[in-house]
């Protein structure tokens, strides 16, 4: 489960952590991705596992468009840019929920049959559900890919440079908006992957994103902003802490363990475990 939290968080790690843009609509991005996956299944009978790249591609476009149409302007604010970002994306989240309810109806959906759904590998008494297993593998691949991308390609360096000093990069001919639109697209695309995997074993309705959003924020912050590896580690820690807390306390308090660990970590290391900013 921890790796799945990581998978949901990886897109946020890019947008929130690397570009330093607050995105309160992250859960809603996930919701849209899950719906896409559901509709591809319902109308074209494409298994979520196959449609994952499609969903990711669609979400890439969606993320880039959202950036160009809305977030770009939120970043232009000269004063209290943080608040403007928080509330612009928060308003966006509400609109997305409303639109989802309008077009998709509030009915609970779920994908009844899929290649992975409900299958389990049992190994020496330990059960490993296949969707989670695939999710974990995809998660590791996504993190490795993003890590490579940020640290080994020109674009990754451009992204980092743009965040640190937009004025300077403009001088060397990098268009800030293009870089960030690409970054948002990538972030949303990663959420798309997560959504497609989640759709296999989770229910889907307009408010579904809310359950995951806070966990994703905590995951990214726990690992530290600006660190891809941090978000990965954060996901694993969150998953482990949740499992351990559920054994020691009443399960309804299991999130308390996650939150407490976050507070403990940032009190000791105010920049998260591997944060650089």
């Amino acid at each position: 489960m921890g790796l799945l939290y990581g998978l949901i968080a990886v897109g946020l790690a890019l947008i929130f952590g690397l570009m330093d843009v607050t995105n309160f609509a992250h859960g809603e991005f996930l919701m849209i991705a899950m719906y896409l996956s559901f509709f591809l299944f319902a109308f074209f009978a494409i298994d979520p596992l196959l449609s994952a790249p499609l969903v990711a591609a669609a979400m890439f476009v969606f993320g880039a468009v959202v950036y160009l149409l809305i977030v770009r302007f939120a970043m232009r604010a000269k004063t209290n840019a943080g608040m403007v970002q928080i509330f612009t994306t928060f308003g966006l989240a509400i609109v997305m929920r409303g639109l989802a309810q309008f077009f998709f109806t509030p009915d609970y959906r779920s994908i009844p049959q899929s290649w992975l759904g409900g299958k389990t590998i049992s190994f020496a008494g330990i059960f490993l559900p296949e969707p989670q297993l695939v999710g974990a593998l995809v998660s590791i691949a996504a993190f490795a890919g993003l890590y490579f991308f940020i640290h080994r390609t020109d674009f990754g360096r451009a992204l980092e440079a743009t965040r640190e000093d937009p004025g300077a990069v403009a001088l060397v001919g990098i268009d800030k908006n293009r870089v960030f639109a690409f970054g948002w697209g990538l972030g949303a695309g990663l959420v798309g992957l997560a959504g497609a995997i989640m759709a296999v074993f989770f229910y889907i309705y307009p408010d579904v994103g809310a359950s995951f959003a806070l966990i994703a924020y905590v995951t990214v912050a726990l690992g530290g902003f600006g660190s891809v590896f941090g978000a990965f580690a954060g996901g694993i820690i969150v998953g482990l802490v949740e499992a351990v807390t559920a054994l020691m306390l009443p399960p309804s308090l299991k999130s308390v363990g996650i939150y407490a660990v976050y507070l403990l970590v940032v009190f000791i290391r105010p920049r998260g475990l591997f944060g650089s900013m």
């Binding site: 489960m1 995951f212 499992a243 054994l247 399960p251 309804s252």
Partner: peptide, 17 residues
Amino acid sequence: DIKYRANSPSLSAEVQQ
């Protein structure tokens, strides 16, 4: 006697119990 948080993102630990 398991009381769990409504709309939890995961119920694995609960089901294990």
